[in-house]
């Protein structure tokens, strides 16, 4: 963590919006979001806009609620009993509140997919891993499946490595390949937002770098929300960064601004490695 300040961060920020000149659409708008595990409040009054076709990073010390916020976006919390959302996450262009109990979580997950901390391919073939999201929504046509599996694997920079062994089990790949397989699985369904929860924390530096490149390249076509505890990673891949602390959103803005001129004392303390 110490390296961050000595090498301040404008480095890897993807080009166009170093200033705030580019006009961006809002893809999603979080409005006064509270989240509860039983009686424990894990998110407090979060207000935040997620910009379309950009990478937004969530940083903050362990336990501050980054994963909790991320998992609101595809309603993963619905799988845990005694959890409760309050407030709104509005998804555009159709302006649906995706955390409303009236919206089916499956509908939300069909629009917003997720890549997890530890690669979790199914113990099925590489092909079936990628095709699964399409199969569950009833795609049967072999030509269509083949095409979309290939496109997703290309999108995850894995096609060249696996095109001759699509029938082999996905679990037989290396850790980095498994994670790219999971990215392909998340891309195959043409999601509007892809969520990443510390996607490289179980990977070696080389595999990490390839995943980071991938995330940067995805941003042109899809909105990315990524949790990371690695500030260099946030600096490298993201355009916007949100700093969270104890369930609150402390500071949010363009990554290069936050890393060079943090507005809040707590942000600056965290970035300089004084806590967390």
């Amino acid at each position: 963590m110490k390296g961050v300040m000595s090498n301040p961060v404008s480095v890897g920020v993807p080009s166009p919006q170093s200033g705030s000149t580019t006009q961006r659409n809002v893809k999603s708008s979080i409005r006064d979001l509270n989240f509860f595990y039983g009686d424990a409040q894990a998110l407090k009054h979060i207000d935040m806009e997620i910009y379309e076709h950009a990478v937004t990073a969530l940083i903050g010390p362990s336990g501050c609620g980054k994963s909790t916020l991320l998992r609101c976006f595809n309603r993963m919390h619905d799988l845990t009993p005694h959890t409760r959302y309050e407030g709104e996450i509005r998804l555009f262009p159709d302006d649906v509140n995706i955390v409303s109990p009236e919206v089916d979580p499956i509908e939300v997950r069909m629009r917003i997919s997720m890549v997890f901390q530890k690669p979790n391919p199914f113990p099925k073939s590489i092909y079936e891993n990628v095709a699964y999201g399409l199969r569950v929504r009833g795609v049967r046509n072999k030509t269509e499946l083949d095409g979309r599996v290939e496109a997703a694997l290309r999108g995850a920079a894995l096609w060249e490595e696996v095109k001759d062994r699509l029938g082999e089990p996905g679990t037989a790949l290396s850790g980095g390949q498994q994670q790219r397989l999971c990215i392909a699985r998340a891309l195959a369904t043409d999601p509007e937002i892809v969520l990443f929860d510390e996607p490289t924390s179980a990977l070696d530096p080389i595999a990490t770098a390839s995943i980071e490149d991938l995330i940067i390249s995805m941003a042109g076509s899809v909105t990315v929300l990524i949790v990371t505890h690695n500030m260099q990673q946030a600096a490298r891949v993201s355009t916007y960064t949100a700093f969270m602390y104890l369930g609150e959103l402390i500071e949010y803005g363009p990554t290069n601004e936050m890393f060079t001129r943090p507005r809040e004392q707590r942000t600056s303390d965290y970035l300089t490695g004084r806590f967390g």
Partner: peptide, 17 residues
């Protein structure tokens, strides 16, 4: 593993699927 179930739910599978 629970992570396998999460992976399947995350692409929009129903509980039965």
């Amino acid at each position: 593993p629970h992570t396998i179930r999460e992976a399947a739910y995350a692409v929009g599978a129903t509980r039965w699927q």
